Simulated scan of single mutants.
Amino acid sequence: MSIANSPDDKSSEDARPFPGERADDHASERLSIGDALRQARIAAGLTVDDISHATRVRVAIVRAIEQNDFAPCGGDVYARGHLRTLARAVDLDPAPLLAQYARDHGKVPAPTPAAPLFEAERIRPDRRGPNWTAAMVAAIVVVIGFVGFTAIKGGDGGSAAKSPVAKGPETSAGKPSAPATKPGKPAAPKPEPSDSAIAAAPRDKVTVRVSATSGRSWISAKDHNGHVLFDGLLGQGDSQTFQDKDKIDLVLGDAGAIDLYVNGKKIQDDFQPGQVERLTYTKGDPVTG
């Protein structure tokens, strides 16, 4: 008497693993990628910091992958690389995890529809040789424009040549006026400030004018509060004027190159070239010029 296998026996037989296949392989496939990595890490007695230190994968990325969040990886290529590195760190075979990632997150490129390619081929223009006719027409237009421009410019030049030239001012007798200065004679030097300039200087303030006439000199000027009014190099021919209600403190780096006017009157001190002078002037200075 033969006994047939019952349906229950058949289902139990199908549930058994194939030869050479372990039952824990099916269990690991049922786990998510993050759960598999986390369980393997815990079984190895490692912390997230240990894994991060061993693999140089940041702690935040390790935690995210164990929670099945692959966004911090920065893309599929980096996610696969991190999976391979973390799996080897906890003695897991990375191939099943990579295959599971491909099934869950892989993006198969959609087939390109045939209609757009056909339309593109149909409307693609044929390659043609250079249009020499259009090039010749353009060259002729350029030549004609150049000839016309030259002719117009020549006509304007002729008319300009015939235009009257402006003459200089003439005297009432019709003769040109004599030049203000005769050639070869040097211009008269500028007059130095005279004693009449004292009236122009305010009497309730002290006014100091420094002029570098014989060369350049470093100048420093301060008011009665010690505030710097000027501190720098005065080039030859340059001047600076300082004014304060009480006094002006001066330092002349090269006093021999300086002409000094205080309250509108020139100081006649015999300063030597290269001599450094420290001077102070008030409203009543100078007593004598």
Score class of each variant (00 low, 15 high):
152 I>W: 10
51 I>Y: 11
5 N>K: 13
123 I>R: 05
238 D>F: 08
172 S>M: 12
143 V>D: 07
27 A>H: 00
108 V>K: 00
281 Y>I: 01
32 S>D: 05
285 D>S: 15
118 F>G: 01
42 I>T: 06
149 F>N: 09
107 K>F: 09
94 P>K: 09
273 P>A: 01
151 A>P: 04
138 A>D: 05
138 A>V: 11
62 V>A: 02
16 R>K: 14
118 F>R: 14
127 R>A: 10
169 P>N: 02
283 K>N: 06
111 P>V: 08
90 V>D: 08
98 L>N: 15
66 E>T: 06
196 S>E: 15
77 V>M: 03
124 R>Q: 14
201 A>S: 15
203 R>T: 14
252 L>V: 09
29 E>I: 04
34 G>V: 02
26 H>I: 05
238 D>W: 07
115 A>F: 11
34 G>N: 04
190 K>V: 15
67 Q>D: 15
215 G>H: 08
144 I>C: 06
189 P>M: 00
203 R>Q: 14
73 C>I: 12
233 L>A: 03
289 G>S: 07
76 D>V: 01
87 A>Q: 06
192 E>Q: 14
17 P>L: 04
179 P>S: 11
170 E>D: 00
284 G>C: 04
160 A>M: 14
116 P>N: 04
78 Y>D: 01
236 Q>V: 13
184 G>V: 04
10 K>E: 08
222 K>I: 07
11 S>K: 10
24 D>K: 08
287 V>K: 15
228 V>N: 04
9 D>C: 00
167 K>M: 00
140 I>T: 03
274 G>A: 08
49 D>E: 13
38 R>F: 06
115 A>L: 12
88 R>S: 05
245 K>G: 01
134 A>Q: 04
122 R>K: 06
252 L>E: 14
157 G>E: 13
226 G>K: 14
106 G>W: 12
255 A>S: 05
173 A>K: 15
67 Q>P: 05
245 K>V: 10
24 D>G: 00
122 R>Q: 02
71 A>P: 10
111 P>Y: 07
137 V>E: 08
103 R>L: 05
193 P>N: 00
25 D>W: 13
168 G>F: 06
215 G>L: 00
83 L>F: 08
1 M>K: 03
120 A>M: 10
271 F>N: 13
19 P>S: 09
69 D>Q: 14
62 V>Y: 10
142 V>L: 09
19 P>C: 04
128 R>G: 01
282 T>A: 13
211 S>H: 14
215 G>W: 00
136 M>E: 11
227 H>F: 13
107 K>C: 03
285 D>L: 13
99 A>P: 10
95 A>I: 05
84 R>C: 00
101 Y>F: 15
101 Y>W: 15
135 A>I: 03
69 D>L: 12
61 I>P: 07
122 R>S: 03
79 A>K: 12
29 E>A: 01
227 H>C: 03
256 G>P: 07
218 W>M: 03
224 H>D: 11
258 I>V: 14
116 P>M: 09
104 D>C: 09
27 A>P: 01
79 A>Y: 12
269 D>Y: 11
95 A>H: 05
258 I>A: 01
47 T>F: 01
159 S>L: 04
183 P>E: 02
118 F>S: 05
143 V>K: 00
89 A>P: 09
274 G>E: 00
218 W>R: 13
104 D>I: 06
59 V>Y: 01
58 R>I: 09
151 A>F: 04
